[in-house]
Simulated assay, not measured.
Amino acid sequence: MAEKIKLACIIDDDPIFVFGTKKMMQYTGFCDTFLIFKNGKEALDHLSVILIEKKPIPDIIFLDINMPVMDGWQFLEEITKIDISETLKIFLVTSSETQEDRDKAKKFSAIKNYVVKPITLESLQELLPTI
């Protein structure tokens, strides 16, 4: 089993996905502490302060592409402009299966993997040891 994650961040406007992912992370014993944001703007506002003040960042970020206010792509553009010493570990978790989105994801070094929803217990267990 992978080392336990201290803090996970979920940026997604789907409450069912957020609830299910949290429960699976808790059930598997990978993580018990979460930051939850409903859109990229909420996440950017909170995480940019953490990054600028050099406070501990989340061990993993699950990021949806399609959200209101600020989508996942806009979030990525803005968060990667911040000069930080630690590496962000972002897993794009989306319902989009288009090659265009997959290719776009490859342009961001912070994206560790592209996962098509729904996330399952098996896919979560495959992802987490790579962190």
Rank of each mutant, 00 (worst) to 15 (best):
D71I: 04
I90G: 08
M1P: 12
K106W: 04
K54Y: 10
I119T: 12
I84D: 10
K4F: 01
F34W: 01
F37D: 08
E126Y: 09
V93I: 08
Y114E: 00
I61E: 07
I5P: 04
T28A: 13
K106H: 02
I79R: 00
N113V: 02
I79W: 02
E42K: 07
E42S: 10
I119Y: 08
I16R: 07
S48G: 09
V115C: 10
V18Y: 03
F17V: 13
I65C: 06
T28R: 14
L92P: 01
P15V: 05
I82C: 03
K4L: 10
K54H: 14
E3L: 15
K38P: 01
P15I: 08
M24Y: 00
D12P: 00
N66M: 11
L63Q: 00
D103E: 14
G20N: 10
E97T: 13
F30N: 09
I11E: 06
A2I: 14
T80G: 00
F62K: 01
L128C: 12
L51R: 11
T98G: 05
E53H: 14
H46Y: 15
V18G: 08
F17G: 05
L44C: 05
S123T: 15
T21A: 13
L128P: 07
C31D: 11
C31T: 08
V69T: 12
I65Q: 01
Y27E: 15
T33M: 13
K23C: 00
T80P: 03
S96N: 07
D71L: 03
F62E: 01
W73K: 09
D13A: 08
C31G: 03
F34V: 06
F17S: 14
N66L: 04
L63W: 04
L88C: 01
K55V: 05
L92V: 02
F75E: 06
T21K: 03
K54W: 03
V18T: 15
P56E: 00
I84G: 03
V18L: 02
Y114I: 04
D59N: 02
E77D: 15
I82M: 01
S85H: 13
I65P: 06
V69R: 11
I82L: 06
K106V: 00
S109M: 12
K6C: 12
C9E: 04
A110I: 11
T87R: 15
W73G: 05
A43L: 10
W73V: 07
L88F: 05
G29P: 02
K23M: 10
Q26L: 06
W73R: 09
I16F: 00
V93H: 14
A110K: 09
S109K: 14
L88Y: 01
L88R: 02
I50M: 11
V93S: 07
N113A: 13
F108S: 02
S123H: 13
K4E: 12
M25A: 04
K112N: 08
T87Y: 14
D64K: 03
F19W: 11
I50G: 07
E3Y: 11
K112V: 09
C9I: 04
V49T: 11
K41I: 01
D12Y: 01
G29I: 02
D64I: 01
I5K: 12
P118M: 04
Q99T: 08
E122S: 11
S123I: 13
S96A: 05
V116S: 05
I50C: 04
F75R: 07
K54I: 09
D45M: 15
E97N: 15
D64F: 00
F30K: 11
